[in-house]
Design a protein around this nucleic acid. Structure first.
Lengths: 163, 163
DNA sequence: CTTGTCACTATGATTATCATAGTTACGATG
DNA sequence: CATCGTAACTATGATAATCATAGTGACAAG
């Protein structure tokens, strides 16, 4: 493609976010990072993206201050990727995407009755459904407040991709 | 690009959303639709996207049931685009993106002190900041509950693009 | 000293994107 | 009645991002 117009200097906040988030690969990598996958190969395998794309996007995310490269061993030198505070704060976006998909993107019965991914409010134990506020205790929900529980179908899919 | 892997049959809800939302043009068009721009030319002008891209993405969004084409006059025949209920339900995603950008994507003073886009809770009049729950009355916030108020800088930028 | 793992980089074919220009249908202006 | 203007597109060609596949470097284990 030709060089796309730069949105990083627009005053519109959605435009600024779109510059980073309007990209399939970025979204999938962030999802995996939130899911706890920190290693390059694990991310590449689960997302199905080629190593070149994963590499490019992780560099981009690092440059944006959303992700940090961290050596987890010295001999041989190996790195893992972690979300920074700025990165963790993107949880609201991914959680909203998940909520929308749970409500609209599945055929009846496709997930076996429940959601593809259940979230439990750690503090009170309630299943929060797709709400932004805990239906049990009324608290606002952020990353860290929630415990994800993938459905059997989702778990099987991920296991298959991990090879 | 080569044909990218299809994510519409993954069990991961973020993956399904990413198939649609992991695209700059889609995000910008949705933003404009939420902002009240319904006409093709208005969207093309404000987003800065070429007519071919706008056309392709509106067709995609229509096919996904997110947008509806609606004739607003007969002679000559003219169409406008409106969000369906499924489309309006994407507000949470765009709102989360806006919140993240307001918190992280601006340099100090760049917006003149306040947010680039203020949101007021219609029911109680509170400025909601970037919260998902009204800080004034505690209600959960959705599209329709909020009244957007662009900062002078953002208003000027949009006026300039409208030509 | 061959095999395996991890984190990448290199290469080449494919195709989406952009900028620009053109089209269709109509109404209004001169 | 011929041109101009507007809205909503479609057509064309150059450019560049993406994918699949293969290869690299550093080390450890067998």
């Amino acid at each position: 493609m030709p060089k796309r117009a730069d949105l990083s200097d627009t005053f519109c906040p959605v435009g600024r976010s779109a510059e980073l988030l309007g990209d399939r690969a970025v979204l999938l990598i962030l999802r995996d990072l939130f899911f706890g996958r920190r290693r390059f190969e694990a991310i590449a395998a689960n997302t199905g993206l080629g190593p070149q794309l994963v590499s490019a996007r992780l560099k981009l995310l690092e440059g944006e201050g959303v992700v940090e490269r961290h050596a987890y061993q010295d001999r041989p030198l190996r790195h893992e990727y972690r979300l920074t505070d700025k990165g963790k704060d993107l949880f609201g976006v991914l959680y909203a995407m998940r909520g929308w998909a749970e409500r609209w993107a599945y055929k009846d019965g496709e997930t076996g009755g429940g959601p593809a991914m259940r979230y439990i409010h750690r503090a009170c134990g309630s299943d929060v459904g797709t709400a932004t506020v805990c239906p049990g205790c009324g608290a606002a929900l952020g990353y860290g407040d929630l415990k994800g529980d993938p459905s059997p179908a989702l778990k099987a899919e991920q296991a298959a991709r991990a090879g």
